[in-house]
Computed example of a mutant assay.
Amino acid sequence: MRPDGPILGIESSCDDTAAAVVRDGREVLSSIVRSQIEEHSAFGGVVPEVAGRSHLDHIIAVVDRALDDAGVGLDDLRAIAVTTRPGLIGSLLVGLSAAKGLAFGRGLPIVPVHHIEAHAYAGTMELDEDPYPCVALVVSGGHTALYRMEGHARMECLARTLDDAAGEAFDKVASLLGLPYPGGPSIAALAPEGNPKAIQFPRYRAKPERPSFSFSGLKTAVLYHLRGQNALNPTPAPEDIADRADVAASFQEAAVDALVKPTIQAARDQGVQTILVVGGVARNERLRAKLSEAAEAAGLRAVYPAPTYCTDNAAMIAGLGHHLLEAHGPADLELDASAR
Rank of each mutant, 00 (worst) to 15 (best):
A191S: 04
D16S: 01
V272S: 05
M1H: 10
I37W: 03
D76E: 10
V111P: 02
V63G: 12
R210V: 05
L92F: 04
A165T: 07
R283D: 02
I60H: 14
P196T: 06
A248D: 05
E168F: 02
P182I: 13
H40C: 01
F104M: 13
A327P: 07
I264C: 10
A331D: 12
L96M: 07
L93D: 04
S97V: 12
M1D: 00
H40S: 03
Y304D: 04
R205S: 13
L92W: 03
T220I: 14
M316S: 05
V111G: 07
H119R: 04
L88Y: 04
L8T: 07
P196W: 01
A19C: 10
A221Q: 05
E285C: 15
L56M: 15
Y309L: 15
A254K: 00
G52T: 15
P180T: 11
R288I: 13
Y224K: 14
V46N: 08
E293I: 00
D130G: 08
D257W: 02
A221T: 13
R340A: 12
G279D: 12
T263I: 04
A98I: 09
E334W: 11
P48Y: 14
I264S: 04
A337S: 14
V277T: 15
I60P: 00
H323V: 05
H58T: 15
S250P: 09
G25L: 13
G321R: 13
Q200P: 07
H328K: 13
T83H: 03
P208H: 10
A314G: 07
V247G: 03
A282E: 02
N230F: 11
P202I: 01
F251A: 08
I37S: 02
T274A: 05
A188S: 15
E156H: 13
V47W: 08
D246H: 05
M125K: 11
S338K: 11
S338L: 12
P330T: 01
L93N: 11
V111W: 11
A20W: 05
L162S: 01
V222C: 13
F201L: 14
M125A: 13
G217H: 01
R148M: 10
H55T: 06
V278Y: 09
R244F: 11
D15R: 05
A294P: 04
D312P: 04
S175P: 03
V62T: 14
R148Y: 12
A198T: 00
